[in-house]
Design a protein around this nucleic acid. Structure first.
Lengths: 226, 226
DNA sequence: GCTAAAGTGTGACTTAAGTCACAGCGCGGT
DNA sequence: ACCGCGCTGTGACTTAAGTCACACTTTAGC
């Protein structure tokens, strides 16, 4: 690992950079640094100055905001090939992170110098189109999140979350009830109680940091309640 | 009003199209139609097929989702120069609106043929950059909304809303309590009660569909509570 | 293996938010 | 002026969600 050639090649694998010539990828790789984070380790913090563009190479970053009483709300998950600091990259005014990010799996991030990045990418149509698709996708997800926080019960949001979770390829790291709470906008105790309800209804089995869905249809039904 | 030259000129005034040559603007204008909507009139509905790109010429469209018991949550406001149907424009899969839109002021909308639009804009860098800035701006706002729905009280959200409202240039059409509820994610009665509290605290005066802020600092303080 | 720390389970209680019901109020028609 | 409808004001009540407290369980580290 670690050579610039290597990194350049990995960058080229991502949709965002798929059309850049190797020569440019190499230049980018040469002025970039890769960081590794363990599960649950902070990657960036709300209010921090943004020094460079962060691209997720591997793993998953949960982006969240925190309230004064230390509750957190997860707003998005960034996976391999997605970039973090879009916001200020394009809005030239803002220069600090508007939310925090924490690895939810072992995660590798490459930080790319902003000036370098801007220069390379400025004139590339495919890049812009791809970036726009990312942005619009996130917009959709956030719209859904906001609507569901406002219009659905915690019960329905949990059901929806469990389904989503089940549809994802195996996450190595288990998820705690506190983390589930941060995903669906409630506190640990509520998650515990709702999970008990679901278990009593025979919809799932609770093991430690491991839930086994038994009746997906019922959960989907619950998730559809608006 | 009404001539294609006219419309082409108006389009050219917007940042999104500011760099397109008049000739292209004209072609676009020729295959476009302008619609007018009165305040509170529906412009598009969740689930509707998207036939063309909608650009707001003038006024304001509130974009919202509705729950089964008919509560609504406003997700964004689209003002002059902003486009509606971005989502499916870029994600080629989806072809229907993921939310509804209603004019919150007398509003003019121009619907531009999708194929035409794509063709014209495909190769224009300035357009892409501007579009990205719009998208990122909305992303920020939605992040804020989601976080505040999850982490703030209705009281704080109302205070924040009143401040935002006060900072906007005069809205001709008054806003009802139901509408305020849809903005901040609660029901009419809660809005009424909170407004009474604020009035009793001497922070504002209630008139019919007209609120006069008396103590902006106190409201800002309340809005800052997380 | 013991201990500390983190995670979980749960009952009892508080509180914010939502629901229901109904009485005024104000404005726009005819 | 009158009527009617949509908006507002408010009390009484219900309920979902959040808080607190504490016991128990699993895991990681020494």
């Amino acid at each position: 690992m670690g050579t610039h050639q290597d990194l350049a090649w990995r960058l080229g694998q991502f949709e965002l950079f798929s059309m850049l010539p190797m020569e440019l990828l190499l230049r980018m790789a040469q002025s970039s640094v890769v960081h590794s984070y363990g599960a649950r380790e902070m990657v960036f913090t709300e209010g921090d100055e943004i020094s460079s563009l962060l691209l997720v190479l591997e793993g998953d970053i949960a982006v969240f905001k925190r309230s004064s009483d230390c509750r957190e709300q997860v707003l998005a998950h960034l996976k391999a090939g997605e970039v973090v600091s879009l916001v200020p990259l394009l809005l030239d005014e803002q220069t600090c992170h508007s939310a925090s990010g924490r690895a939810s799996l072992p995660t590798q991030v490459v930080s790319i110098r902003l000036d370098m990045f801007k220069e390379l990418v400025e004139r590339n149509f495919v890049f812009h189109r791809t970036l726009q698709r990312f942005l619009v996708g996130r917009l959709e997800q956030l719209s859904f999140l906001a609507a569901s926080l406002s219009l659905q019960s915690a019960r329905s949001r949990l059901a929806a979350f469990l389904i989503r979770q089940a549809d994802q390829p195996g996450q190595s790291t288990g998820i705690t009830q506190v983390e589930i709470g941060a995903e669906i906008g409630t506190v640990r105790e509520i998650v515990a109680r709702l999970l008990r309800d679901f278990e009593q209804a025979g919809w799932l089995e609770r093991k430690r940091q491991q839930l086994v869905l038994k009746n997906r249809a019922a959960l989907e039904e619950e998730a559809r309640r608006w």
